[in-house]
Structure formats: structure tokens, C-alpha cells
Write a protein that binds this DNA or RNA. Structure first.
Lengths: 298, 298
DNA sequence: CATGCGGATAAGTTTTCCGCATGCACGATC
DNA sequence: GATCGTGCATGCGGAAAACTTATCCGCATG
């Protein structure tokens, strides 16, 4: 027994509704024999008579009446499928699964997501957090659509990164420690102060270490922490000073002052996705919003 | 934009489930290029990419994931349709709408329906009551599948009647009125007694009148009623005697005696259906049960 | 009895679908 | 790093399906 086709069920429903094969046929935009053949084929596939011709009208049999409801359900389901696809095609709907590698990225996302929600309300954004290698692996496997990480990152050959933002690193000092008359601080300046830095191994910490290294110095932090919030609290409490991404500060920190570095230091934020990834509208919008939110893509 | 086909949705679901086009193809019993083509056609029809190839596996995109649920619903609905049709084909299920013209038929139906329910539990029988012409009209229009009426009936040319039972008419008398020593009663016997008969115009009444007419007499009832139950009560109360279908008595009537008529009189019960009506299993069973329940089809 | 309507049927054509063969990309293996 | 194996895409040819045109039949109507 063959499966009934959607078209056959549709024609059947139209016949039941209009009460005639001819009317149903022209409502469906095809000729009467075509509709007749579909009905015959449907009856053959189901092994049951579905329609009776009675006094000029076509009336469903018992089996036909029983078939109406599931046939309607099938039609509705396919219609839903089409609607869903249309929503995705037009960009009204969509889903983007984004992984963020560093915790600092969390400070960048909220305004981005707010803007995204405003410009594309139907887009569903799923944020997954984790360490950078894990996030990148999930992107490679297709479990995530994109990742927002700080460069440099160990990208596989199947991944590609596009810079979306430059996040300057700045010095954060307690008001008491801030050298007066100096708008910006050098590595030598900081090296003389008690430092509270990111934990070793984090990407941002590696960038900071390289900056010190370029000045021929090596930072000797009195504390290393994995949480930027904890560092901020400690600096505000006068325990030491730190070098933090400007984005992570989110504005002023009470009891602490922000000073730029000299030479300027910044980390690169990039969106990483698979090379073959087709950028649909939702992903494109997310990437655009990230680009716009994070300063110059440098 | 073309409609997606059931087969395409099915293939898509299999690909999502198995994680590969090839595995899905062989699970569906077709070759890999066939499945590939279906997927391509489905994506073209929907205007959205549905699958991504990533590291040897096929993973649904956002649109694809959104499509899974309605696609499953469509599959399930069609499966339901098939199941329903299969039930009707095998005779497990079915529906027969039967119209009964005379109220007397109600006395015949209960045992018939009981037997029917025993032999074909899935069969749904719908009984519609009404006067004979109305019932027959509804049969002609396909609103009813069959009618159980007493002959003769004014059948249209599109209807055909098959006799299913002979229902003898008998005299019902109060014990006080029963003539002793006479096993059967003639029209002359009854003409001398107070008669309580069906109302004029009813089919059964016409048969009784004709029986009297054949004896050169005309009944002069003291009462005419449309309810056989009411007549039974009146006869049992000694108010008069009547001529009733044996089936309508359903057994003995307390306080009354039953006597056969001489010459014997019977009415024919017939199942009426449209000439072109295809007799499915449910209708056939119903007709057979009616034949078996009502005495000789005469 | 002619006519119109609705449906069934037949034949021919276009479209679709599938299988086979082939090519391409990626990952694994030696 | 060259080779092999796997998985998917593509092109082509034949089979099957679906649609259209044309015709016929039954039935109701004037």
C-alpha cells in the first residue's frame, strides 16, 4: 500500500468542502480529470472508497469522513512548516547559538543583545559560555554557530575569525595610588605598583605579559584572580592596581581611577565561525551588532 | 514556491535523526543521490538552507531545527490517516447511518444492534428516526446510508429495497374480550369489537385497512393513536382490542392475549438504499443482522 | 428529445523521481 | 605528504507519475 500524498489529501478535502470534483479542481487550479485521478489514486492507496456520487454531489463515505480530520491535521502541519521556513527566510525568525570564550565578553554582550532584540525581535540568541578551546571545538562541530573570542586564538583550519572590536586595556588604580600629573602609565610605572592581574593562562593575561615584555619588564602581581569583578573590588578597596579591558569596567569604578596605557594596548575581539558556514540573516545581524558595539575593529 | 512533499519531509527527518544523508537514504530504501536530490528540492521549495555539512555529519540549521516539529506532526497526521483507513478497510471500524421510518422498527433494532456490536465491535451505528418519506429522501441525498421501512413504500427511481423480514400482524385483546375456542380471528370478528388502531396515514394502518377491505369491511376504531406503547396499555386496561405488529409486542402483554389473524397478515420490512450504493462491510453486516432477526424474509 | 452539468475514461505529453556513474572535499592511514 | 576511504554533490538516462486535452456516459432539466 502506497502512502497518500499531501496533494491527494488536499484535493480530497477540497472535494468534501465544495461538494464536487469539478469545483474542487478549479479551486486548486487544475483540471477536473486531474482531481479525479488523484481521488482514485488516493482511494487505491488507502484501499477504501472515500467518496460517493449522489444526486449531483460528491459525499464522503464513512471512511472518508473519518479521513477528514487527520488530513486537515497534515495540511495544517505542512502549512506550519512553510510558515516557519518563510519566517526564517525573511529573517523574521532565526536562532543563533553564540559561544563566548572569555568572561570579559559577558560585559560586551548585553547592549549588543538589546540592540539585536530591537532590530530583529524574532531572533533567538543562545549564549553558551566556556573556555576558549572548548567553545571553538563546539563551533567546529556545528554545535554552536559562532564564537566571540579574544585574539590570538588557536583556530583550527576549518575556522575563520573576523575582527569585530578593539577593546583597549587600561590601568585601574585606587585614587590614592594614581600618580598625579601623568595622563597615561607605562609598564615601568605599573611595575612599581602592587599589581592584581588576571590569572596566568588567560588570554588577556598573556596580552598584558607581552606588553610588559616589550618594555623589557615582567609583571610581578601580588594577586592573580580569574574574576574581573573581584579584581575591581580589590582595586577599589585600595589593595593594588590592575590592567583590565575597558569593556570590563563598564564605566567608572567607585574609589578607583582609570588611566590609559602607554604605549596603548588593546585586545582584539573576533567572531569565529566555520569557513563553510553560510551566514544567515540572524548571524549576520549578530555579527554586525558586535562590530558596532565594541569600538574600532582595528 | 512549491509545496514541500511528504517524502521530502520524511527524508529530512531521517537525515536529522541519523546524522547523515547516506544512512538516511538506506534507511528509506533508496540511494544516496535520491535523498540528496530530495533535500535540495526541499531547501529550494522552502527557500532556506536546512542542513549543514560539518565534519562528516549533517546538522540541521536553525531553520532546519524549527522545521523538525511541524514535519513530525505532518508525518504523524498522515500515519493517522493511514491507520484510520486501514481500520475501515479491514472492517474493524466503520459507520452506518440508518434511518427507520416507522416507530415499530425501534422494537426490531435493539437485538440487531446487540448482535452487530458483538460481531463487529468497531462499527458505529447511527439511528435516525423520522417519517418514511423524509427518511427516504435523506437516503437519496446520501445523508443516510440505509433506511429500514415497511413496504410498500414510495421509492424513488434511485432507491432499491431488499426485504429483510416479515413481521406478522396479530390481534391483541383484553382477556375479557378474547373469544374462546377460536384460535384465530377474522376481520369480521374484529369488526364487532372496539378497536384501538394506529393513526390513519401510518403505513401499518394502511395495511390493516387493506386487510379489512379484502374482507369487505372497514374498521371503525374507537381510538387512533400514533404510539404502539399507548395502544398496548389501553388494550391491557380492557379499553378495546387492536391489531399490532408482532415485533412491537416484544413478548407477552400482561392482561392481554395475542391471537393470529385469519387470513394471516404480515407487513414486509425492507432495507432501502440507493441503487449505486457500495455496500461496505459495516452496511453488509447491518443488513445481514436485520435479515436474521426478523423472521422469514417472505 | 435536446441540452447542460458533473464525472469517468483514454491517450499523449510534460514533469518528477530514481538509479547508476562520476567527481569533489575532507579526514584517516601508512 | 601521498594515498585511500568516506560522504555528499552532480550529470545523465530510463521509469513512473501527474497533468492536459479530448471524448464519452449518466442524469437532471426544459
Amino acid at each position: 500500500m502506497h502512502d497518500p500524498s499531501l496533494r491527494q489529501l488536499r484535493t480530497f478535502l477540497f472535494v468534501v468542502q465544495t461538494g464536487g470534483v469539478t469545483t474542487a479542481a478549479q479551486a486548486l487550479g487544475l483540471t477536473q480529470p486531474a482531481a479525479s485521478q488523484q481521488l482514485r489514486e488516493l482511494e487505491r492507496a488507502m484501499g477504501v472508497r472515500l467518496l460517493e456520487r449522489v444526486s449531483g454531489r460528491s459525499v464522503p463515505t464513512a471512511a472518508g469522513r473519518a479521513l477528514i480530520e487527520p488530513a486537515r491535521r497534515a495540511q495544517a502541519a505542512v502549512e506550519d512548516a512553510r510558515a516557519v521556513a518563510a519566517a526564517h527566510r525573511s529573517g523574521e525568525a532565526g536562532r543563533v547559538r553564540l559561544g563566548t570564550g572569555a568572561t570579559a565578553c559577558i560585559h560586551l554582550l548585553p547592549p549588543v543583545l538589546a540592540e539585536l532584540n530591537e532590530r530583529m525581535p524574532g531572533l533567538e540568541v543562545i549564549i553558551a559560555t566556556g573556555n576558549t578551546p572548548d567553545i571553538l571545538r563546539r563551533v567546529e562541530e556545528g554545535d554552536l554557530d559562532a564564537a566571540l573570542v579574544t585574539l590570538p586564538a588557536a583556530l583550527g583550519r576549518s575556522l575563520t575569525a573576523t575582527r569585530v572590536a578593539t577593546d583597549p586595556l587600561v590601568a585601574l588604580l585606587p585614587e590614592a595610588m594614581a600618580p598625579s600629573g601623568r595622563p597615561s602609565l607605562t609598564a615601568a610605572d605599573l611595575e612599581r605598583l602592587p599589581l592584581i592581574l588576571y590569572e596566568t593562562g588567560a588570554n588577556t593575561r598573556a596580552i598584558i605579559d607581552a606588553w610588559f615584555r616589550r618594555a623589557g619588564l615582567a609583571p610581578r602581581p601580588i594577586m592573580e584572580l580569574g574574576s574581573v569583578e573581584a579584581i575591581k573590588v580589590l582595586v577599589a578597596g585600595g589593595r593594588g592596581c590592575s590592567v583590565l579591558p575597558a569593556l570590563a569596567l563598564g564605566g567608572d569604578v567607585a574609589g578607583a581611577v582609570v588611566r590609559p596605557l602607554r604605549p596603548a594596548l588593546a585586545r582584539q575581539l573576533a567572531v569565529v565561525l566555520r569557513k563553510e558556514k553560510v551566514v544567515d540573516r540572524g548571524l549576520g545581524r549578530l555579527r554586525a551588532a558586535l562590530k558596532g558595539a565594541g569600538g574600532q575593529p582595528g
